[in-house]
Amino acid sequence: MRSIGVDIGSAATKCALWDGNDIICCITPTGWTPKESAEAAVVMIKEKAGIAPDAPGISVTATGYGRNVFPADKRVTEISCHAAGARFLVPEVGMVLDIGGQDSKVISLHPDGRVADFIMNDKCAAGTGRFLQNMAVHLGCTLSDFCSIPEGTVMQPINSMCTVFAESEVIGLLAHGIAKEPICAGLLDSVAQKAVTMISRAGGSGDICFTGGCAQNGMLRALIEEKTGRRVISHALSQYAGAIGAALIGAK
């Protein structure tokens, strides 16, 4: 059975198609209208897979914060979807760290992959992709610049976790003539620290599958690994974990 999963996040809408053997993914910015972005993503994935737009027998499962605005066959929370998606990408992993556009979460899994517990930060932008995005505005750089900080950059510690206070701190540091790269490194460290706090609250000692948009950042991954002493695995399709999980759950 073919099944589509659409993960309507605050920044990007991710879509995955599962045909029983393989996964195909695509992504589009969520913009102002989550419903239209999700519809566009479904059209896009069908095109990519060479499926007719009105082909019958394909279920659509929605997840993410926009899941309730989209007419899907099934709606599942991002917790269950990220868990299922992460286990697909990294089999047997016992913990998932997801850092997305507006929230971050740590999910502990039972050995069989079911969700055992979860911790969520969705009340505050600290420690999320939004935090980095806001800072990028002040630094006059893009999110991808956070992925290309030269090796050996000495980090400038950022003391404020709060997005609003960190903004003033960054502006102050720039005024003192501190270069952008050390500030970027400091900001990544701040996001890593927030993640590590959640990970240690959740406990455990095994490998961690890192998902969500921020999982693409190698330095962030390395910082979390260093601080926790645990292996942090990200996958080329990490950003699509929620959508993949939704497609897999929809196929059940």
């Binding site: 309730n68 917790i79 269950s80 969700v115 979860f118």
Partner: peptide, 11 residues
């Protein structure tokens, strides 16, 4: 709250 309790119920 809907997301938290939704996930809890799924769990």
């Amino acid at each position: 709250l809907a997301t938290r309790f939704g996930a809890f119920a799924e769990m």
